[in-house]
Amino acid sequence: MRVKLIRDGRVVEDDWDGPLLSLEKLNAGVSGDGLGLVLQPGESPQQIGVELSRLSLVAIHFPVLTDGRGFSYARELRERGFRGEIRATGEFTRDQLFYLKRCGFNAFQLADESQLEESLANLEDFSEVYQASIEQPEPLFRRR
């Protein structure tokens, strides 16, 4: 059975068939595009040695929910023009979805699949925000 996850605001089955390469493997040299990559904490997007356009999926792994490096990684990826899927995996929780989404994540593979449907609501925890972010590039002070 395929894994379920939230992607672009809906619960879907994971249709990713390719491998998810480690940063080390990717940088060692692979051919082709449509690649998948997993970033662990400590592996910043700045260390990615290939053109971002060759990647289709970047999974950012959260080994513990309190390690917030991945939030910056997603934002950096988007700021550098990455348009593919950014997926959160690991021990993050539904209470972090809103922040993750704002940093540029569009897919969420929760450890507990049974929470997926309920968690959709958390993507909309707030209807207003102060800061510029990936999904709202204008800070509130420019929109008042």
Binding site: T66, F71, F98, Y99, V129, L140, F141
Partner: peptide
């Protein structure tokens, strides 16, 4: 106040 608003619920820096 400008810093308060910027830092309040900042999505990137809640798990420092």
């Amino acid at each position: 106040e400008i810093i308060r608003q910027w830092s309040t619920l900042h999505p990137e820096f809640a798990f420092l």
